[in-house]
Amino acid sequence: MMMRTRPHPALTAFAALVFFFLMAPLVIIIGASLSDTSFLTFPPQGLTLHWYENIFEVSAFKRTMVTSATLALVGTSLSLLVGIPAAYALNRYRVQLPSFLSTVFVLPILVPELVLGFSIMKSVTTGLDFPIFASLVIGHALLVLPYCVRVVSASLSSFDFSIEEAAVSLGCPRWRAFFTIVLPNVRAGVIAAFILALITSINDVSISLFLTGPGISTLPIQLLAHMEQFFDPTIASVSVLLMLVTVGVMAVVELTLGLTFLTK
């Protein structure tokens, strides 16, 4: 009996197209970042690493890189601090809690980010007169909260809460059981939420656009400003750098925990 080993040519072509559209922008950005020209172009004309050096020479890039990293870490941590207990309660008391509560925690996704950014600016930055960095932290924490709650929830939904009760029956107070029994068993979800939130925060433009202000900006916003003025390959080289950070984070996850664990 003949086995059909070759897929239909149309399927092969379609798959190739998908890969092309996924990969082409990356190739173009990497290529453009190496171009020895003072404007963004592809294919690159001449090869240079000058634009990578330029990132670290322009002080605005250095400064916003630190801001973005700090903001992402603080915002994500704050969001997890709220999101983990929220996810725990939503799953632990699924029967008792009204069902609309789980929807409340995804609302920030449903509201257009521009609207979210604008309303935080109006209420927190100008309304409450918060410092710019504090408003940014609140905005980003809110932005990534749905991801934190959802991803940690997914982990908790398969967690058997009778395990927690077993710990309590053995003499462990509820609060300690949460840290020694519940958290270690949803570790995968917490790390996944952390990474997802971190990347979302670092790449955010819409919310930061409203919340950045004099003296404080994030890397993507700085990129936008730079693009309006110069349109040189630095934009491409910063993009490549951001990609490398993501790849680096993923590599660390893969090496320490295995990537499949993110899909658990």
Binding site: D160, S162, I163, E165, A166, A167, V168, S169, G171, P173
Partner: peptide, 30 residues
């Protein structure tokens, strides 16, 4: 009394063992 002070040995339908601990640590938990 709060549940953790009642000093009752409980055995559950679905075993409720701690998945992240060894069998010895499971038994030693209490």
């Amino acid at each position: 009394l709060p549940a953790h002070t009642r000093d009752i040995g409980l055995v559950f339908q679905n075993y409720a063992l701690f998945p992240h601990l060894t069998i010895r640590d499971n038994v030693a938990f209490g």
